[in-house]
Design a protein around this nucleic acid. Structure first.
Lengths: 123, 123
DNA sequence: TTGACATATACCGATATAGGCATATATAGT
DNA sequence: ACTATATATGCCTATATCGGTATATGTCAA
């Protein structure tokens, strides 16, 4: 067996730096493929392939416009990633400042809607 | 070239579901390898290999304790991921459902996940 | 139709991954 | 010493990735 497919989920799709670059560019607005090619300096087939992966995970949407294909970011598919890392946010905050950062974080997270409890300990 | 190495960064390390599982367990407290093996129901060598990857990216720390090896989560290495997805958070938040607002916000946002410059100038 | 442009796909090569199994290393206990 | 336990690593196979080159598909214009 090889690695988990890049099209398996957003985690794998986003693991590729170029794909993150594409999303970063698309964050500035929808764009045709050629625009991405020029902006990223990558080969056109490569961009198309990466876009295919991003599309299969739902990270981007396409719209046909004449002979062009306009790609648009669909950040909603990043939510699983966000939800997952969010639970660790406390981990690196605690590591440095402990209580201070935690309190500051709680202040800012008034509406974030955390539903996950803490792990605590075992044994 | 094959895919980007799993040890390249946290993005790739975390793309593997088992590795995420391991981190999830470690989020509940530091644990020896055998504990992870039992908890996840994976083969011991497999767990060791995944731990190696996680270690090389800095996602976990190890501490020797007798003939056991206690692994501990180091969530700080997840910060780059968090910082990156954070910029897309508004994309799925209903309050900022309007696309133009989303794009406007993302445009001015600072991206931490950039590793390659671009040569294009357009727009 | 022919040609230019825009994008997707097929094929190929090189890489290295995940996982299995066997074994090496290390420590603790007898 | 030897044995059991705990963990890491080496070798192997199958897989499928990324990137490149060439080509197919599709669309507009003359």
């Amino acid at each position: 067996m090889a690695r988990v497919a890049t099209t398996a989920d957003a985690f794998n799709a986003v693991a590729e730096p170029r794909r993150r670059q594409i999303l970063d560019v698309l964050a500035g607005g929808e764009r045709p493929v050629n625009d991405l090619v020029r902006r990223l300096g990558l080969a056109q087939p490569l961009v198309s392939k990466h876009l295919r992966v991003l599309r299969e995970v739902g990270l981007v949407d396409v719209r046909d416009e004449g002979r062009q294909r306009i790609y648009r970011l669909n950040g909603r598919s990043l939510k699983p990633i966000h939800d997952w890392v969010k639970n660790y946010e406390r981990a690196w905050a605690e590591r440095f400042d402990r209580l201070d950062v935690v309190l500051e974080e709680l202040k800012g997270a008034e509406h974030t809607g955390k539903e996950q409890g803490d792990g605590g300990d075992d044994e």
